[in-house]
Amino acid sequence: MQLLHTMLRVGNLERSIQFYTELLGMKLLRQSDNTEYRYTLAFVGYGDESDHTVLELTYNWDKSSYDMGEAYGHIAIGADDIYQLCEKLESQGADVYRKPGPVLGGDTVIAFVRDPDGYAVELIQK
């Protein structure tokens, strides 16, 4: 068994691909359009799907935003230098809404950023 991917619905595919690739350093692994059902799938990640879990960004052509709901939590990404990454993210206009620092009651250094659609991404210092 292997966890393959997590799917996020996005309102602007290009903006989301740019965020995950240029700001968080993922690679665009593959992308495909389904013209009959009017959606595009883009898979991004840090390595090949055969041995890495990736993100599936689903863009429904006729929808530009989604209600987050209250069940969704976040995805988590390990970072070599969380402070430098957060500076880079903020300089590019990203919403780092929880600055880097120790988690309450612990020593692990974390931060939180929102992607262009408002999804929470936890950054964890490796």
Rank of each mutant, 00 (worst) to 15 (best):
Q2H: 09
L4E: 05
L4W: 03
T6P: 11
L8S: 02
V10Q: 11
G11K: 07
N12T: 01
N12L: 05
S16C: 10
I17V: 14
Q18L: 06
Y20G: 06
T21I: 07
L23P: 11
L24Q: 04
M26R: 05
L29C: 13
L29F: 10
R30P: 03
R30Y: 11
Q31G: 12
D33W: 00
N34A: 07
N34R: 07
E36R: 10
Y37H: 13
Y37C: 07
R38C: 12
R38S: 15
F43Q: 10
F43E: 07
V44M: 06
G45C: 12
G47P: 02
D48K: 12
E49Q: 06
S50F: 14
S50E: 15
D51C: 15
T53L: 09
V54T: 10
V54D: 01
E56F: 12
E56L: 14
W61G: 12
K63Q: 09
S64E: 13
D67Q: 11
M68I: 12
Y72K: 09
G73W: 06
G73E: 05
I75M: 11
A76D: 05
I77Y: 02
G78L: 15
A79N: 11
A79Q: 15
I82N: 04
I82E: 01
Y83K: 08
L85P: 01
C86L: 09
E87T: 14
K88Q: 04
E90K: 05
E90W: 01
S91V: 10
V96E: 03
G101D: 04
G101F: 02
V103C: 08
V103I: 13
L104F: 01
G106N: 09
D107A: 13
T108P: 07
I110A: 03
I110S: 03
A111C: 08
F112Y: 12
V113Y: 02
P116S: 11
Y119A: 08
A120K: 14
L123I: 00
